[in-house]
Measured scan of single mutants.
Amino acid sequence: NQASVVANTLIPINTALTLVMMRSEVVTPVGIPAEDIPRLVSMTVNRAVPLGTTLMPDMVKGYA
């Protein structure tokens, strides 16, 4: 099973992502692959992402 990116904290809308905000976890449904974490750093989220939420491609500006 592939690990996905999961919010390690509440990420407010329009926040630039940092490494400490994200962790990898095997979850269903599958979200952004964990190997993309380095690429996500400094990208911003377009909605509030609660703790434990899987990051989906449409949640990160410029990812999809």
Rank of each mutant, 00 (worst) to 15 (best):
N1K: 12
N1H: 10
N1Y: 12
N1F: 11
N1V: 09
Q2L: 11
Q2V: 13
Q2Y: 11
A3W: 07
A3Y: 10
S4R: 01
S4I: 02
S4V: 01
V5G: 02
V5N: 01
V5T: 11
V5C: 04
V5P: 01
V6C: 04
V6N: 00
V6F: 02
A7V: 07
A7H: 01
A7G: 03
A7F: 02
A7L: 03
A7I: 04
N8E: 09
N8A: 14
N8L: 06
N8W: 04
N8I: 06
N8H: 08
T9L: 14
T9E: 13
T9C: 04
T9N: 09
T9K: 15
T9G: 09
T9H: 14
T9W: 09
L10K: 13
L10G: 12
L10N: 13
I11F: 02
I11Y: 01
P12K: 11
P12Q: 10
P12M: 09
P12C: 04
I13W: 11
I13L: 10
I13N: 14
N14A: 09
N14S: 08
N14H: 14
N14Y: 11
T15P: 01
T15C: 04
T15K: 07
A16S: 10
A16Q: 15
L17K: 00
L17E: 00
L17Y: 01
L17R: 00
L17M: 07
T18M: 08
T18K: 07
T18P: 00
T18Q: 08
T18V: 07
T18D: 08
L19I: 08
L19Q: 15
L19E: 06
V20Y: 07
V20W: 10
M21G: 03
M21K: 04
M21C: 03
M21N: 10
M21F: 05
M21P: 01
M22E: 01
M22C: 03
M22S: 00
R23K: 11
R23I: 07
S24P: 09
S24A: 15
S24Q: 10
S24K: 11
S24R: 10
E25Q: 15
E25K: 09
E25T: 07
E25A: 10
V26N: 13
V26Y: 14
V26M: 14
V27W: 03
V27D: 02
V27C: 04
V27L: 05
T28V: 11
T28L: 15
T28I: 11
T28A: 11
T28Q: 12
P29F: 03
P29D: 06
P29E: 05
V30N: 14
G31V: 02
I32C: 03
I32P: 01
I32D: 01
P33G: 06
P33V: 12
P33K: 07
A34D: 06
A34M: 09
A34N: 04
A34H: 06
E35T: 12
D36A: 13
D36H: 11
I37V: 06
I37F: 03
I37T: 09
I37D: 00
P38D: 13
P38M: 11
P38L: 13
P38Q: 11
P38E: 09
P38W: 12
P38A: 12
R39W: 06
R39M: 11
R39Y: 15
R39A: 11
R39C: 04
L40M: 08
L40E: 00
L40A: 00
L40H: 00
V41E: 06
V41R: 06
V41P: 02
S42E: 08
S42M: 14
S42W: 07
M43Y: 09
M43C: 05
M43Q: 08
T44S: 12
T44V: 13
T44H: 11
V45F: 01
V45G: 00
V45C: 04
V45N: 02
N46K: 11
N46G: 07
N46D: 11
N46S: 13
R47S: 14
R47V: 12
R47N: 06
R47M: 10
R47Q: 13
A48K: 10
A48P: 07
A48R: 14
V49N: 02
V49Y: 02
V49E: 01
V49T: 05
V49R: 03
V49M: 05
P50F: 09
P50Q: 10
P50T: 11
L51Q: 14
L51I: 11
L51S: 10
G52W: 04
G52T: 02
G52K: 03
G52N: 15
T53M: 14
T53R: 07
T53I: 10
T53G: 09
T53N: 12
T53K: 11
T54K: 04
T54Q: 03
T54G: 03
L55N: 01
L55W: 02
L55C: 02
L55Q: 02
L55G: 01
M56T: 12
M56N: 06
M56C: 03
M56Q: 08
P57W: 09
P57V: 05
P57F: 07
D58A: 13
D58V: 11
D58L: 07
D58W: 11
D58G: 12
D58K: 07
M59T: 06
M59H: 07
M59N: 05
M59I: 05
M59L: 06
K61R: 15
K61Q: 12
K61L: 12
K61H: 13
K61V: 15
K61Y: 13
G62F: 09
G62D: 09
G62S: 07
G62H: 09
G62L: 08
G62N: 13
Y63L: 06
Y63R: 03
Y63P: 04
A64L: 10
A64K: 04
A64S: 11
